[in-house]
């Protein structure tokens, strides 16, 4: 191992440092959300986890680029063994499980939500975005998440399309509306001091 002298140290700039810290904190927050479930108001037997809400919030607060990066970091951390996937699971195998498709969709969904809401790559202050735009952005991401989630469930579990659409789609769809409502409530709340 080579010795490091001070002249070799390549410091990270201050703006980049804050972005790295925010990306890591958001990815960790996604991991913490995976442990929190609320009862689904329409189908009480299927609990709602907050992960998709984490995708929305990362896109709203960090923008498309850093929000998408936070999701990539979340997936990589889970693949390498940090227990951040639903109910504290981890490992490369999760990508080949029933919910592998949802996981892979998160970076794409975060990028899309961020790009629509902020109208470009640079994030604006979340409070300056209209409610309509927030809802459209998040609603557009829902088909993206299911476009990955349902075919992967269909393929990995070798079921018919009907079963895949019921088990991996319809049971969870009503909860997405609750998450979008919650995200709008958060962004336009007077209690939010940050960003």
């Amino acid at each position: 191992m080579a010795n490091t002298s001070t002249t070799d140290v390549d410091l990270v700039g201050s703006e980049m440092t804050l972005n790295v810290a925010r990306v890591a904190l958001f990815a960790a927050l996604m991991g913490a959300f995976a442990y929190v479930s609320f009862p689904n108001p329409l189908v009480p037997s299927v609990p709602v986890t907050l992960q998709v809400l984490g995708v929305f919030l990362a896109a709203i607060f960090l923008g498309p680029v850093w929000g998408g990066a936070a999701m990539v970091v979340y997936l990589l951390a889970g693949a390498l063994g940090v227990p951040v996937f639903s109910s504290g699971s981890a490992g490369l195998g999760s990508f080949f499980g029933a919910t592998g498709g949802y996981l892979v969709s998160y970076p794409f969904a975060a990028f899309l939500v961020g790009a629509v809401i902020h109208g470009g790559f640079e994030p604006d202050a979340p409070k300056s975005v209209s409610v309509g735009r927030l809802i459209v952005g998040m609603a557009l991401a829902v088909p993206v998440v299911y476009a990955f989630g349902i075919p992967v469930y269909w393929y990995y579990l070798d079921v018919t399309w009907t079963t895949a659409i019921v088990n991996a789609g319809l049971l969870f769809l009503p909860a997405e509306a609750v998450k979008i409502a919650a995200a709008v409530g958060i962004v336009h709340s007077d209690r939010l001091n940050t960003a």
Partner: peptide, 18 residues
């Protein structure tokens, strides 16, 4: 209601994380 509970938990969590 569920969406209010989620929003209030997350508001505090987000503030803390930032």
């Amino acid at each position: 209601p569920v969406h209010e509970r989620i929003a209030s938990v997350l508001l505090s969590a987000l503030d803390g994380a930032f």
